[in-house]
Structure formats: C-alpha cells, structure tokens
Design a protein around this nucleic acid. Structure first.
Lengths: 209, 209
DNA sequence: CCTCGAATCTGAACGCCGCTTAGATAGAGC
DNA sequence: GCTCTATCTAAGCGGCGTTCAGATTCGAGG
C-alpha cells in the first residue's frame, strides 16, 4: 500500500522508500541546487532515519546519480518531441537545439547536476550512461541528417561541433550570460535566435577556416 | 619576513596568511577539485588554526572566489599571448579559441571552479567580475575583428555564438566527451581541429538556413 | 497458521566540516 | 614604553556523510 507524503509514518517499513528518496532529492535539487542538498534532509523529509537511505543507495552520490538519470529521461523526451514535431531536417535541428537550451533554462539546477561528470562515472551509473548516450544520439542523428555526403570524420566533427555549440548555449543561458546581449529580450528568445543561426554546413568543411 | 612553507610555525603571526591561503587553496582545487577542498585542510596545510582564515575571508566561498579570480588572470594572460602571436584576424580567432580550450584541458578542476556562477556573485566578487569581463572582452574583440560590417545585433550575436561554441568545446573537452570522437587522437588536437572549423560568418547571417 | 531468514529501518556514534566566540599574542603608532 | 588594533588560538556549536548493532517487519516454506 502506497503512502501519501502528508500522512504520518505509521508503518515501520516505508513501502517504497527508494522512489520517495529520488522524488525528494529531485525536488530539493531543483529548488536549492546540489549545494542545498543533503542526504539527511531528504531522509527527514520522508520521515525516515538518516541511515535508512543506505539500504537503497550506496552513498549520497548514488542518489544524485539517480536524480541525474531522471533528468536525462525528461530531457530525452523533450528532445524527441521537438524532433518529431518538425518536418524538414533543418527544422529538426533548430527544434532540437532549442529544446535542449529551453530544458536547461527550465530546470537550471537539475541541468547543472546532470553536467557534473562525477555522477556518470562510478559503479551505479549504468542507467545514467545509457540515458546520456541516448541524448547525444538524438542530437547526432538530426545533425547527421542535415549534412551532405562527407567523409566519416567530417560528419563526426560536425556532430561534435553542434553538440559543443548547443551545450555552450545552454551553459551561457543558465548562468545569465546570454542575457547580457539584450537585457530586454527574454532568454528563451535569444536562445531561439542563436540556435537558428547555427548551420552544420559551416563546420563540415575544415578548410573554410 | 616571509616564511617558506616547509619551516615550522615559529611566529604567532603568519606574516602573509591571506596569500598563503590562496596558494594552498589553488593547489588543493587543482589536485582534488572543489569537492576535495576544505577550509580546515587548507588552514592546516599552512600551520594555522581553523578559525584564522576568517580574518582574511568572510567565508569559504570568498576564498574560492579568490582562487577563481587567480584562474581568470592566468586565462587572460594565455588568451592575450595567443591573440598577439597571430597576425591576421582569422588566425587570432583560431588561436584565442584554441588557447581557451587548452587552458581548460590543462587545469580542468580550476576551470570547473571558474565556471560556477556562485563564486562571481556575492559581495567579494568585484575583482573576479572584472577579470571575467576581460576574458569575454578579449574573445569578443577578436571575433568582432573577423566580421564584415553588419548590424549591431548581428555582431553581438556572432560574438555570443563564438563564445558559446568555445565554452561548449571546453566543457566537452574537460569531461572527456570530445575524446569519444577519435580515441586515438590527443584531445588537444581534436580541440584544435574543431576550433579551426568555426567561422563567425556563418553566424552573422540569420537567414542562412 | 507458524516459523524463521532476509530485508528494512532505528538510534547512536564517529569524524569531518563551516562558522562563531572569548581570550591570548604580537606588531604599529603615539 | 604604552596602548590600540590586527591577528591568531582554542574551544565549541550544529550539520553533514557514513557505519553499525539491534529492533521491526515482510514473505517464503513448512
């Protein structure tokens, strides 16, 4: 029997503590960031002793890894939706890039956690790595679809360049540097505009300089 | 009288504790990252009680702000050197972009600290903000020099796009994602190649695609 | 239905952390 | 030489992650 979060802890066993911990951790990270997260606080929030989480997660980092994994799943859904919504490949590219930056803007703290390499190394990061690979795959396939026939390395370079650009945009957007461009414009609109300027063709020819 | 780090603490007053703390903090951050940093450990390293640093820094974050500031000064020197070494503006652009990524690759932990917004907000971040602005200015002026005459917003957009791309490259390079392109190639070489592919012209025309 | 092993949770403890405070010490200006 | 102020120490507070022995409950097999 599942318990709602409000009702007092009557049962010695929680029932679904693992999921409750991830839920609480996600909420705390989204509100206060990784720095404002503590395993004890999350445990207290679900009326459980400070040692209880260790029956479900090897340590605090493992719980945060689960949080990041959930973040990647949400991100992948957003990217797929945006990609399928567009008809032509250039539109897909603009759409998926914009969706990436918008996700970062909507959940900046969660996105910052997802960017930390320490959570996708480690022994409990298998599912996370899978979700991360899917994210890159989604973007790469769209970029690849925009490219003319080229050498293998040129295609790969273009994918990586697009990845870099979008990741950089998301980074600048989340910590407000994008807004220094035009303070009156909404950061979402700036992001849309800059993503739209990107053309993978300019990266697929190495001698363009 | 300055003390070397090795000799035992004989004097009650340290002499130049503030600088010694920054030195120790830089060393610790470069070796173990921000997570492996603690104010107590740095204090102990320079043979000083755990409360002493608070006479020179308001809190641990203020010390890390000083660390980040020193990092930005080093980065700015590297960027200026690279920019002046090249003759033509396209060469300057490739040089400064490469220098940026190479700095990130040489000091990844320090660079990761410099990327955290929490250190350049706050009341003790004046000098840091100045150094950060100089970093952006150096890149922006070089990008601007590469551009043909355009509208003001187009030039600004191109600068921001270049900024995003380089920042994204540095991010991907430092956490190893760049190496997935070609595992046999040195990350420095991949970075050089991708930076070289970038052309600001492709961003200065919004209707290209 | 009952029993017993395994899974789960508690409560207390350890060591480390950031930060504060009261008081000791040393250098600087008169 | 004396005082004033900056600097440093020692001790302590609460919070943290983590561990562990023991209490509690679940669930499978008799």
């Amino acid at each position: 029997m599942a318990k709602t979060s409000k009702e007092k802890s009557k049962t010695y066993h929680h029932g679904d503590l693992k999921q409750a911990l991830v839920d609480g951790a996600v909420r705390r990270v989204e509100q206060n960031g990784v720095k404002g997260f503590s395993l004890r606080a999350v445990a207290g929030e679900v009326n459980v002793s400070s040692g209880a989480p260790y029956h479900h997660f090897r340590d605090a980092q493992a719980l945060l890894t689960a949080v990041a994994e959930r973040g990647f799943r949400q991100l992948n859904m957003a990217l797929n939706t945006a990609s399928e919504a567009a008809g032509t490949y250039p539109d897909k590219l603009a759409g998926i890039g914009t969706a990436y930056v918008l996700f970062a803007l909507e959940k900046p703290q969660l996105f910052a956690l997802m960017r930390q390499p320490e959570y996708w190394t480690g022994p409990d990061a298998g599912a996370l790595q899978e979700a991360r690979a899917a994210t890159y795959g989604a973007l790469a396939s769209v970029v690849d679809g925009c490219l003319p026939e080229e050498t293998e390395t040129a295609r790969k370079d273009a994918c990586m360049a697009a990845w870099s650009f979008v990741e950089g945009l998301a980074l600048l957007a989340t910590d407000g540097r994008l807004q220094t461009l035009s303070p009156d414009e909404a950061p979402e609109d700036i992001a849309r505009r800059l993503v739209g300027c990107f053309s993978p063709h300019s990266f697929s020819k190495g001698d363009q300089q």
